[in-house]
Design a protein around this nucleic acid. Structure first.
Length: 421
DNA sequence: TCTGGGGTCCTAGGACCC
DNA sequence: TCTGGGGTCCTAGGACCC
């Protein structure tokens, strides 16, 4: 038995938590660069603001509806997320952190002591009491069914945020209400194809012949169908699997047309990616860089990418910057208005040791590890920052966050104050 | 004028080998 | 002039997730 616990409108709720006077008003959170909407509270959803809607389209509605928007404040969300996950983890023997605002719990056997539905409400109450945030809980036989239950807990307010189903007839009834594109694992594309085939509800999908699914789709959807039937195919992942890839990419706040600026941006992303790599305690041997124009603009379009294989695995920022810069040199094409660039690290190993070929003389840099340790330590502390020359200083394309809330929980100088009357 | 970022898994097809 | 069959590995691209 699985329980899925998911925070309601997580980012928006975090903001309201520290600005309680906003309760009842439509509140949303914007993506990096204040580009588009990525979180909405109930009130904002009601107005008809859709997920992913660009900021400039919402702007004209702000006054009329009293909408309040925030730039995303990941330091705040990550901190509150950790608190929620800790509480959820304490509620079951085994748990899996699934995303910043969701956890799976293994709740097998819990019902010997507490009926599942009551247990779901206990989870909700505890998270509410300790963090002020509201979670929705779905409990059922498989992860996919638990997701469906959790969907129902949000779609039907009468459930008061908890849906726990073990009985087959009741599960079938729930599935008959759920549109196929709301199922976990069915996205827009496959949802559309299923609809065209006349499969509209989760129940209809569950009752579709497995052979038909395998012939027309692939094993992933087959697994989803089996899970909807109550057959467990996906289990709880208790140990966080090591990453296979690290990406660092950003849209520019202003278009980049100049090679020098692009090199600086890529250098900055390379630096950040290398930090993440060291945090993962990994070394990488493949580095790729990409840059592209805005697909929404009427400009000439370009999407360039290239990569470099290293002979020795590295986690040294200098190696990663050098490789990234050489890729930029190779792929750069002038004459485009670039909107975004990024770097991707691949081909990881837990040590620097790699198979050297007979004539290799690429000895690793001496003192590399010690230097990187010092750099990371300085940059994680509050003393100040060190950076690599290629990053440049304060650039015009740097991310824009004009509606950022204070770091209430992670900086002493941003602690909220209470007035005693 | 202005449209996010970071991941995973699977498959098809090409390169290459014998 | 005629040019097989089977396997592996890698990559690009598509689909999904949050």
């Amino acid at each position: 038995m699985f329980a899925l616990c998911d925070c309601n409108s997580f980012y928006a709720s975090c903001e309201i938590l520290f600005a309680p006077h906003l309760r009842g008003r439509p509140v949303g959170v914007l993506s990096n660069n204040d580009g588009c909407i990525i979180a909405r509270n109930q009130e904002l959803k009601k107005i008809g603001i859709k997920m992913g809607m660009p900021y400039f389209q919402i702007k004209p509605l702000i006054k009329q509806h009293g909408i309040v928007l925030f730039s995303s404040n990941y330091a705040l969300y990550a901190d509150l997320s950790a608190r929620v996950h800790t509480i959820l983890d304490s509620m079951a023997l085994n748990s899996e952190v699934y995303s910043i605002d969701e956890s799976w719990l293994d709740v097998t056997g819990i019902d010997v002591i507490t009926p599942f539905e009551e247990y779901g409400h206990q989870i909700r109450d505890k998270v509410k009491k300790h963090t002020g945030l509201t979670v929705g809980v779905g409990i059922s036989k498989t992860k996919t069914l638990a997701k469906s239950c959790q969907w129902a807990s949000k779609a039907y307010p009468a459930t008061r945020g908890v849906v726990a189903l073990t009985d087959d007839a009741r599960i079938r009834k729930l599935l008959s209400f759920q549109p196929v594109e709301e199922i976990w694992g069915v996205g827009r594309r496959i949802g559309k194809r299923l609809n065209l085939m006349g499969i509209k509800t989760a129940l209809e999908l569950a009752d579709t012949d497995i052979r038909f699914i395998r012939k027309n789709f692939h094993v992933v959807l087959e697994r989803t169908v089996r899970e909807l039937r109550g057959e467990k195919c996906i289990s709880l992942e208790e140990n966080v699997p090591t990453k296979q890839q690290i990406i660092c990419s950003r849209s520019f706040s202003q278009r980049v047309t100049d090679e020098q600026a692009m090199r600086q941006a890529v250098c900055q992303y390379a630096t950040r990616a290398a930090e993440k790599l060291r945090l993962e305690k990994q070394f990488c041997r493949h580095i790729s860089v990409f840059m592209r124009t805005s697909p929404f603009a009427n400009d000439p379009q370009a999407s360039l990418s290239g990569s470099q294989q290293l002979i020795t695995a590295t986690q040294d920022t200098r190696d990663i910057i050098a490789a990234a810069q050489s890729v930029v040199d190779r792929i750069w094409q002038p004459g485009f208005r670039y909107a975004k660039a990024g770097i991707m690290l691949n081909d990881f190993s837990p040590t620097r040791v790699a198979q050297l070929s007979l004539f290799d003389d690429h000895a690793p840099r001496p003192g590399s590890e010690a230097l990187m340790k010092v750099v990371d330590k300085i940059n994680q502390g509050s003393l100040g920052k060190v950076w690599f020359a290629g990053q440049g200083i304060e650039q015009s394309w740097q991310m824009k966050r004009e509606m950022l809330s204070p770091a209430y929980t992670t900086r002493w100088d941003a602690l909220p104050r209470a007035k005693i009357m």
